[in-house]
Write a protein that binds this DNA or RNA. Structure first.
Lengths: 203, 203
DNA sequence: AGCAGGTGTTTTACTGGTAAATGATTTGGC
DNA sequence: GCCAAATCATTTACCAGTAAAACACCTGCT
């Protein structure tokens, strides 16, 4: 087991042994109350029904998806509280952290979204007075986008709160586990970013 | 620098040391070519601009979000190839792995989506002949949904391909790292599922 | 029986994303 | 210099999700 835990996640191993044959009633997603996370429960179901399959990848990918979903819709996060979605904040953040004016295209690449999505967000954020645009003098196709003072103030005001919120959300993991998790995700991400080059429609 | 590494990954550590002051040109998302993943680059930018902030949570949450996004839009996955989105497949999968008829409400809970979303997906999947519904005889509000033979065949046909696709996607990580990652994500998920109880509008 | 209130599902109105087409401009070959 | 092809951004048409309201039905109290 080597790993992280010694306790193999799936290892709780159920005392009695009765199974959801008919009575999964009440708990969502095949989850028994005290057991592991919901993904583990799902994986156990698959193993029961299709024991021939190697379900290992579900343990990683299923959990990544579910973590992302949960983190996304955390209603109490400072971001939402400030009326910003994560993609909007990412856009503002890209401007703040680079300290530069960026073109819509650059913003799309920075934030890993499509050009069309950026156009829409910029419209929104411009109306809210958080960003400004000016045309390029040389190349009249491109625009340059920068934070307004209000936009910069908003980012600077929210970011610490958001980070400390995220810190508490992660607090259940020890510091060592967090670093280890970050490192492993980083390794995975390097692979993914190489392998599945997103064909982001810059156009 | 404490940070992220403790282990390799980020350890490349930049030879020279010139910095994106003005020349992030060309590479997306602050990424220098050989360095770590894009999230690491973003974090470095934040640290340069706001050294007072504790960026540790970004290393985890940012990477989870980015991994999820990349995995989502993997255009070559068997799922997409079969014309199914992940949420659609999750719905079919819930029916397959439980082996039962489920009501729309149960499906919503199983798949962590809203009732309305399930309604829409069911409409879609019914039209495609992958699921069937019958009304409950006792309680005429509820419906019972089951896989058609075609639906079951589709799931059984796709799942092995999808899993083996996922296996190769994860192959860059060693088996041990994969298990460790799964375990850590499981730990995190337990925390998140307890902490941020999603107020899923069952209604 | 009758009705207040709860539950299971669907509908409505809207939002934010996407892919593909479009408009506007620059660039490079000749 | 001029036109074909490339590039940057936006627009269009559409689709899937959401929250809130509506609908249909059941349940339990009186």
């Amino acid at each position: 087991m080597t790993a992280a835990n010694g306790r193999g996640t799936v290892g709780v191993d159920a005392p009695g042994g009765e199974w959801p044959g008919g009575e999964s009633r009440g708990e969502a997603a095949a989850g028994r109350p005290g057991a592991g996370d919901t993904v583990a429960a799902v994986v156990r179901q698959w193993e029961a029904v299709r024991p021939d399959l190697d379900t290992a990848p579900m343990e990683v990918i299923g959990r990544i998806n579910r973590c992302a979903a949960l983190l996304q819709q955390a209603e109490d996060s400072p971001l939402r509280h400030a009326g910003l979605t994560r993609p909007e904040f990412d856009l503002l953040g890209a401007l703040r952290r680079t300290g530069l004016e960026l073109t819509p295209g650059e913003l799309a690449r920075e934030t890993f979204s499509s050009g069309a999505a950026v156009t829409k967000r910029l419209k929104q954020l411009t109306e809210r007075g958080l960003v400004e645009r000016r045309g390029d003098t040389r190349d009249r196709r491109v625009a340059h986008v920068r934070l307004t003072d209000a936009g910069r103030a908003l980012v600077d005001g929210i970011l610490p709160a958001q980070l400390s919120y995220e810190t508490t959300v992660l607090a259940g993991l020890g510091g060592t586990d967090q670093r280890e998790l970050a490192a492993l995700l980083g390794d995975l991400l390097v692979q993914l970013e190489g392998r599945l080059r997103t064909p982001r429609t810059t156009a």
